[in-house]
Amino acid sequence: MSDRDPLQGVPDELKDWHQGALDGDPAVCAAPQPMQPGYPCIHSTGFHELHRDVYGRTWPNRPEEPLYVARKAPVVDGMVTVETGDHGPVHVPEPSWCVGLHPAESFQVDIEHQGVETVAAIPTLCHGIVPALGVSLVQRPFSPTAPQVHAVVNMAEDFHAFSSTGLDIAAGLLVDHAAELRHMARQLAALEVQS
């Protein structure tokens, strides 16, 4: 039996989401992966079309669809290659915060770096746990209007019922999530200084 850590080389942030999925953290999707017990989905509980494990393997959110695996793009000397329809293979620097999934794109302008999404998962009386204010870092380096690193925030338009206790819990979860937003703001400020 090998003493090697099976998650060796996986970024700490992804390991944290993986552990959260295993531990039943309500902010993590944790959907089981077919044929890969012990490697659940590490996405937040916000909507996602594909589940993804700590290694970047993906599977459909709808079980009637066939299983397929998204490959993590290899990084060579800090660069990743993305196949595009209009410019062929395009080499771009791979930031450390990017999760590393780069599917082929029809257009170079659509190449995107995406960070791990953090979300406030709030329990409600009417809909169970509801994700709120999902936030992640994103960069489209070839965008003509906004090529810089920026944060995207997912804000769903819906109303949810709370008891007084539930509302108090929601307030605490939002305070915790505000700390995540502040952390990401500092990370983004450091990236803005670098560019």
Rank of each mutant, 00 (worst) to 15 (best):
S2Y: 12
R4E: 15
P6S: 03
L7V: 07
G9N: 14
L14N: 03
K15L: 01
D16L: 13
D16Y: 05
Q19R: 07
Q19N: 09
G20P: 10
A21R: 00
L22M: 06
L22E: 04
G24S: 08
D25F: 12
P26I: 00
A27T: 09
A27F: 02
A27I: 06
V28C: 04
A30Q: 06
Q33L: 13
Q33P: 12
P34K: 07
P37T: 11
P37S: 14
I42D: 01
I42M: 02
G46R: 05
G46W: 04
F47R: 01
E49G: 10
E49V: 13
L50W: 09
R52D: 03
V54T: 07
R57H: 13
R57S: 12
T58L: 15
P60L: 00
E65R: 13
E65S: 10
V69C: 12
V69P: 02
A70I: 10
K72G: 11
M79A: 12
M79W: 04
V80K: 14
T81A: 09
T81H: 02
E83V: 08
P89H: 02
P89E: 00
V90T: 01
H91F: 06
E94V: 04
S96N: 07
C98F: 04
C98N: 03
C98I: 01
V99M: 12
G100D: 13
L101P: 06
H102P: 00
A104D: 05
A104Q: 11
Q108C: 14
D110F: 10
D110A: 12
D110I: 01
Q114Y: 11
G115D: 05
A121G: 12
L125S: 11
H127W: 02
G128R: 01
G128W: 03
P131C: 02
L133G: 15
S136L: 12
L137A: 08
L137T: 04
V138N: 02
P141R: 11
F142V: 00
S143L: 06
P144A: 05
Q148Y: 06
Q148C: 11
V149P: 07
V149N: 15
H150Q: 09
V153E: 00
N154H: 12
N154R: 08
A156T: 10
A156V: 14
A161M: 07
S163N: 05
G166L: 02
G166D: 02
L167P: 15
D168E: 11
D168N: 14
G172W: 02
V175R: 08
A179L: 06
R182G: 07
A185E: 07
A185M: 14
L188H: 09
A189Q: 15
A190Q: 13
L191F: 09
Q194M: 13
Q194C: 13
Q194E: 15
